[in-house]
């Protein structure tokens, strides 16, 4: 725990130095610094807007949803429907993998098995509805249908394989994060 705190102080330190560097770049008209600032702002704005509501919803989920319910829909005894649920949940997760990681961890600790968790995380970025619409309009509908149609079965198959490995080595996802 102590080691963790130290690391966090270092992280905050690096972050502050980075912000100072960005501000300095504006001041001294350092072009590369300006490009980095633009990119930083794109991600920072997204995170600032998405993370607070996402984590409140995760909090509500952990307090309200019973273990039994998750075991029934995402647990190892719930058959093929858990992959359909995992993919549907992924398609509607706002914020892609950034939000999918904490959600997946909460799901796991409520009784979801590895194959649903892995299917969920990997499909979270693959099938996000608004992103897929954008892709279809720029690269082409054919490409998007092909990509989603081919990838989902592979994702489910690989998740089932990963599940077998992790059950065998008795792996546990980190708790209390």
């Amino acid at each position: 725990m102590k080691k963790n705190n130290k690391n966090h102080k270092l992280d905050y330190g690096i972050f502050i130095v980075f912000i100072l560097f960005l501000l300095g770049s504006q001041l001294f008209k350092f072009d590369m610094g300006k490009v980095i600032t633009d990119n930083f702002l794109i991600f920072a704005r997204d995170m600032l807007l998405i993370l607070p509501p996402a984590f409140i919803i995760i909090g509500l989920f952990e307090i309200w949803v019973s273990r039994e319910k998750i075991e029934n829909s995402f647990g190892s005894a719930s058959g093929i429907k858990r992959y359909i649920y995992a993919i549907l949940l992924a398609a509607t997760t706002v914020g892609g993998t950034f939000v999918a990681f904490p959600v997946a961890n909460s799901l796991y600790h409520k009784g979801a098995d590895y194959s649903s968790v892995f299917t969920y995380i990997t499909s979270a970025s693959l099938v996000m509805i608004p992103m897929s619409i954008m892709e279809a309009s720029i690269i082409g509908l054919e490409f998007t249908i092909l990509r989603i149609g081919l990838s989902l079965p592979l994702v489910v198959i690989s998740s089932i394989m990963l599940n077998k490995i992790f059950v065998k080595i008795k792996y546990d996802l980190p708790a209390d994060v």
Binding site: F55, I56, I57, I58, G59, L60, E62, I63, W64, P102, V177
Partner: peptide
Amino acid sequence: SIQRGFKK
């Protein structure tokens, strides 16, 4: 719930 989310 809100506290849990915030802490996380």
